[in-house]
């Protein structure tokens, strides 16, 4: 029966742990709700205490209130909360930044963009878009060939969101970057930049040695809708990679009568793969072409 007694003791221990754990959960949730409603005891705690708390929702509340303090010069606190390990705190800190944005802060946000979780990055994109003149000026200095590739990738994605022609022109200049992923990002961003220079760079990217860049370039050319790209896209139907042939075919289908004509010609191509792809794309309805081009 000693064994049984031991097991019963273990059982009781587990139940006590459950009871205590559940009670703590309820208490913490109640406190979180109270903080969220900006009421209750925790609301009266000094900001530094909240910011140093081990509970993320207290730090998030500190971040929500830090805007006012930061306006008085407490940048250190805001920076600390912006770099908090919990994304909710980062989000709250980002939301507090709106009235405080200046060139230094924009620079700091830009430099840390690649390390942010995706949701926070997107939130900061919104903040940086709202401060476009400052962001554009700071980005222009940073969009260079020797910038760290990881940061460059995030910045190009930001430029894509901002859609500023000056910034897109600067991005276009990165089309010969040694990193394929940067060239891919450039080719993707250039779909928003309808300019002869962008067209030219996309046509160059159609011959990139990385197939992903070729496929994305074809997709961007289809989006531009410029019929001058038809011969190069028709040649892309003979690419060794299925995805490049597919994207070139879809791009041709988006280029009106000239593109459809090129697809018809390609159906009789001596290259079997080009012919098959052209036949397949020609059979798609206009809605399907749009849906597949977007994806």
């Amino acid at each position: 029966m000693t064994l049984l007694a031991l097991v019963v003791l273990l059982t009781a221990g587990a139940q006590v742990a459950l009871l205590l754990g559940f009670a703590t959960l309820l208490l913490l949730r109640r406190e979180r709700s109270a903080i969220g409603a900006r009421g209750g005891e925790p609301g009266r705690r000094p900001l530094d205490d909240l910011a140093a708390s081990r509970h993320w929702w207290r730090r998030a509340e500190a971040a929500r209130r830090s805007g006012d303090v930061a306006r008085l010069g407490d940048r250190e606190l805001l920076n600390r909360l912006l770099d908090d390990p919990h994304p909710a705190v980062q989000s709250a800190a980002t939301a507090s930044l709106a009235p405080l944005v200046d060139a230094r802060l924009v620079g700091r946000l830009l430099d840390r963009l690649p390390e942010r979780p995706m949701a926070i990055r997107l939130q900061q994109f919104g903040l940086l878009r709202d401060a476009l003149p400052l962001t554009a000026a700071t980005l222009m200095e940073r969009l260079t060939l020797d910038a760290p590739p990881r940061r460059l990738k995030s910045w190009i994605a930001l430029v894509e969101t901002l859609g500023s022609p000056e910034l897109l022109a600067r991005v276009a200049a990165l089309h010969s970057h040694p990193e394929p992923l940067i060239r891919l990002s450039v080719a993707r961003a250039l779909r928003h930049y309808r300019h002869p220079e962008a067209e030219e760079m996309l046509l160059i990217a159609l011959h990139d040695h990385d197939w992903r860049v070729r496929a994305v370039a074809a997709r961007s050319l289809g989006r531009h809708g410029n019929v001058s790209a038809v011969p190069r896209l028709a040649a892309g139907l003979r690419d060794v990679r299925w995805w490049v042939r597919f994207r070139c075919g879809l791009a041709l289908a988006q280029l009106g009568a000239a593109g459809r004509g090129a697809l018809d010609d390609a159906r009789r191509d001596v290259d079997r793969y080009a012919g098959e792809m052209a036949t397949m794309i020609a059979g798609l309805s206009p809605d399907s072409v749009i849906e597949l081009s977007e994806g």
Binding site: L4, V7, A14, L18, G21, F22, T24
Partner: peptide, 20 residues
């Protein structure tokens, strides 16, 4: 039998604790 089930269910209770 009783020990087996007490241990079995206590293991489940422990998992519930770690779910908190």
């Amino acid at each position: 039998v009783v020990s087996f089930f007490l241990l079995f269910h206590t293991a489940m209770a422990t998992l519930l604790v770690s779910a908190l």
